[in-house]
């Protein structure tokens, strides 16, 4: 580990060389803002910016979720309205049950595997817990635990994504294609967007793990961990919404 050499050798002859090496190694930037600057609000610029970014993400996911809901409604309305079978049923006066059955069959709900998706939700919640514990560890200077919890978060996140891959595969095999119906398009776009965000978070986590193994993610950079954590919890929050709105509410 280059960094350990650099810091331990300070009293040896190679002090200046180590210092130089360390300078090369040094990676402060806006990405890892660890200076305590004077700011008007007394808050860190990075954290404020992260919250603003998350605010804008709220509007993004809001639009996607409402698009999904609208598409679902439209899909069912269209399906019922354009179906001679249903119209016949209505004219025969036995519409209620039949129409409901039609909707239930054509909708996306029959595909849902609620036990499995619940498990996915638990996994994502677990990863949120380990993320927050990682942040706790780094503020306490416990770098061993930091690595463990970061890795755990990443592994759990990847497991969640594996669940997503599994779910998409089964849905696709069972006939819900992306281009086949409005519902398919809306469903895959919404969950796919969430998945893309999780993947982005995973790569950030991977970088944190790498940096922490290089001893570059330390107490003074706790905020970087916190920022990635904020993003990660936000992705979790979005899943909380999607899970209830898309999966549980018919």
């Amino acid at each position: 580990m280059a960094e350990t050499t650099a810091t331990e050798d300070l009293d040896h002859e190679g002090a200046a060389a180590a210092e130089f090496a360390d300078q090369l190694n040094d990676t402060p930037s806006d990405f890892v803002h660890h200076e305590e600057h004077y700011t008007s609000l007394g808050l860190s610029n990075m954290k404020l910016a992260m919250w603003l970014f998350l605010g804008s993400e709220v509007l993004l996911f809001g639009a996607l979720i409402s698009t999904y809901l609208l598409s679902k409604t439209r899909f069912i309305t269209e399906l019922v309205a354009g179906n001679p079978y249903v119209i016949e049923g209505i004219s025969n006066g036995e519409n209620g049950a039949l129409v409901n059955e039609m909707i239930a069959e054509a909708s996306v709900e029959p595909l849902f595997d609620i036990p499995f998706t619940s498990l996915s939700s638990f996994i994502l919640l677990m990863s949120s817990l380990s993320m927050v514990l990682a942040h706790k560890s780094v503020t306490e200077g416990n770098y061993k635990n930091l690595r463990i919890w970061l890795s755990t978060t990443m592994l759990l996140g990847a497991t969640f994504m594996a669940g997503q891959v599994y779910e998409f595969t089964t849905f696709y095999r069972e006939g819900l294609t992306y281009d086949g119906s409005l519902l398919g398009t809306a469903f895959y776009t919404l969950t796919g967007f969430h998945g893309a965000h999780v993947t982005g978070g995973l790569i950030m986590l991977g970088s944190l793990i790498y940096l922490s193994f290089k001893n570059k993610m330390q107490m003074d950079r706790a905020e970087t961990v916190e920022l990635v954590g904020l993003y990660w919890h936000f992705v979790d929050i979005v899943w909380v919404l999607i899970f209830t709105i898309v999966y549980l509410i018919p």
């Binding site: 698009t67 309305t77 992306y178 398919g184």
Partner: peptide
Amino acid sequence: PVLTVAQLLLLFDRRFDGNFFNVDQGSD
């Protein structure tokens, strides 16, 4: 972000055969 979503929906429609604005599939 709202424009971004609208444009992404359009992108998916045009490039990946999505159905967000495809009236044939009952969309509005």
